[in-house]
Design a protein around this nucleic acid. Sequence first.
DNA 1: GGCGCAAGGATTGTTGACAATATTGTGGGA
DNA 2: TCCCACAATATTGTCAACAATCCTTGCGCC
Lengths: 220, 220
Amino acid sequence: MSAETSAAGATEDVVDLVRAAIQHGDFVPNQRLVEADLSLQFGASRAAVRTALVQLAAEGLVERVQNRGARVRAVSLDEAIEICEVRMVVEGLCAAKAAERGAEDDLALLREIADDMRRAVDAGDVFTYSELNRRLHAAVRAASGQHVADGVLERLRGQNVRHQFRLALLPGRASVSLPQHLEIVEAICARDAPRAEAAMRAHLASVIETLPQVGSSPAR
Amino acid sequence: MSAETSAAGATEDVVDLVRAAIQHGDFVPNQRLVEADLSLQFGASRAAVRTALVQLAAEGLVERVQNRGARVRAVSLDEAIEICEVRMVVEGLCAAKAAERGAEDDLALLREIADDMRRAVDAGDVFTYSELNRRLHAAVRAASGQHVADGVLERLRGQNVRHQFRLALLPGRASVSLPQHLEIVEAICARDAPRAEAAMRAHLASVIETLPQVGSSPAR
DNA sequence: GGCGCAAGGATTGTTGACAATATTGTGGGA
DNA sequence: TCCCACAATATTGTCAACAATCCTTGCGCC
């Protein structure tokens, strides 16, 4: 009973449910994830929950230790910085590839998102801007056609959502990052790969500099 | 019976055994991995094998489809190139970090490996050179202190060992890559981060250019 | 001879119970 | 009062059996 999502195997559903719960903040860092409890909570068998935890551990979202169970993995500020450093170079690669090989449709989407961003900042709509930020980075990855990089970034994003979210709420953050985002889009649309890579790296370097201001305890 | 490795859980052993078998070439790409067979082969329960396959799927070494079982994931030439592109930028980051923050001990190890490489090439010892190549890249990663990047690279390396190995056997490959490796070490030891990053990227760009020559079917 | 179709075999997915291990709580002795 | 041994509990690890699903093969029919 309870909320069955689709028609896939029960275990796949549990993976998505637990992942969503972690990323949405329903499970806080270091919270214990007892198999029997989750089994009850999601109405799935304990084996399904167990399999899901193994998979999420491989994704870096939970920590599992022998005979001691699983808990939500807490990413420290230092690690969040390291993650952003890797993002910086990999998304830089994606920006360059997007400039080189991106389809016109993909580039049109980038311009569209950039326009929406301008409007959101004008309106002072922080929440919409945060969502557009996510979509812009995703659109660059998609335009790059670099599936391996895309996978790496998706994995890292999952581990970092909490820090990212807090960053977006910093007052004045949007007015700093907007011109950076616009420069990225402009460089890609100009098919200038080195400039696109440099712009993306500059943007994420700015994110890294700002990161310490959000503190190391994301959203208690 | 059969080879129990250590005192860890049976399932952890199976993960390592299957991973080793895939990377060593005992299991070829696209080979089916039937749970019952592996269970017999490694003397473990089917549940342990099953858990191991889930984890290896998350690592990108095997492919699993609903009700159809698991098989060794085959990485195409195109994907191998993408992997090396990501390696290029991430190892570039590591080289820069190693130049900035690497401990003197770490740098000494780099110089030592570089010397061994010179000797191996002089002696025409391709196999030793290949092993030193692996150790050099690992040493750079270690010197960087960038654990996130290290994890990403380890994952990618696992998916690419077969292509990498074939590349090392190309005649004349060592004489091309040796000076590149030496330049990387020199730049890091000179604490010149931009030069170290550029050297590492140039080296891997050369790898990418050479990759198509090894063909897309690694070691049938 | 080709094509739909059903039975059989092979393989995976799921469940529940049991064993092994870690953690917590309790009482006795110094 | 503090500390240590020891039992009780909570939780994970393992296993074997069962159910569901997919693939193959052989048959009849057009």
